[in-house]
Design a protein around this nucleic acid. Sequence first.
DNA 1: GCATAAATGGAAATGCTTTCCATTTATGCT
DNA 2: AGCATAAATGGAAAGCATTTCCATTTATGC
Lengths: 147, 147
Amino acid sequence: MQRYIRMLREGKFKITPRREAILAYFMKEGKYATPEQVWKKLRISLGRLGLPTVYRNMEEMHQLGILVKVEGAENRFYYGLCRAEDPQVHHHHIICQGCRKVQEVEGCLVGSLSKQIEAKTGFKLTGHTIYLQGLCQSCITVDGGGL
Amino acid sequence: MQRYIRMLREGKFKITPRREAILAYFMKEGKYATPEQVWKKLRISLGRLGLPTVYRNMEEMHQLGILVKVEGAENRFYYGLCRAEDPQVHHHHIICQGCRKVQEVEGCLVGSLSKQIEAKTGFKLTGHTIYLQGLCQSCITVDGGGL
DNA sequence: GCATAAATGGAAATGCTTTCCATTTATGCT
DNA sequence: AGCATAAATGGAAAGCATTTCCATTTATGC
Ligand SMILES: [Mn+2]
Ligand SMILES: [Mn+2]
Ligand SMILES: [Zn+2]
Ligand SMILES: [Zn+2]
């Protein structure tokens, strides 16, 4: 938690109850969620909470590297906590299709292949985004988990 | 062209002037585009053309594997023509950030690494989506191309 | 404590995408 | 060629995730 608070401070953001609550939510859940899902949950304990506030804060946290952002089905965006030691260091994530848990995948999947890709296509690679879907240990066994 | 027409037929879709026009658009442009961009262009020559028709047809073509669908910035979706011999055979695409040209990248970037990923994460991989961004030959030289 | 810029919430706006439905059209079959 | 029929189409309206506005509240440094 302190880690993420520090990242917010470094980004010149104030530490507010709403931001702490959002961080706590993701620390506890460990799964990816939409701003609306977070809002519905936190609204209860926080009394008052605006949906735009949740959208704003989650997007800011994404910009800071605290949250991963992925496009789910149905044209909505989901966010999950990035647990890498240093989120700035390029890496990827895999998301469980059963329970929506997010897990780090260290290293870059494209790095070692980039030369080949550039040779074959004639393009110069400037960036990439990878969405890995899978099933986590517990969802493999119970087949379906929690979704 | 005939290739794509055949794919439509196999999907039980009728061959209409609108569908032919959309295919022709992508054959000619070779770049990715939003339904709205396609609509604005085709509306002129077709006289009458509904934006929902373009959305519907492009999404159907995407389902058939004729068009690639990517999320551009600003939360909009872009489509580009898939030129692989057999679109059903898994492969990837790279998109030029300069001129938006779409090009095939044969083979799978994850395939050879999947065992490693599964070993490291404990997840079982079930799928993946890769967005490769780059600069095509002509956009490398003129730095910026056409965007 | 105080000043001040940042954060917040509720309402309203945005804007991409989809739905509705009456009308038109492609296609298979006489 | 003519017909029947399910599919396709367009215009208007609706949906809906996300953003913007702005008056009020609050975190933070001094
Ligand atoms: Mn991460
Ligand atoms: Mn392709
Ligand atoms: Zn799981
Ligand atoms: Zn280019």
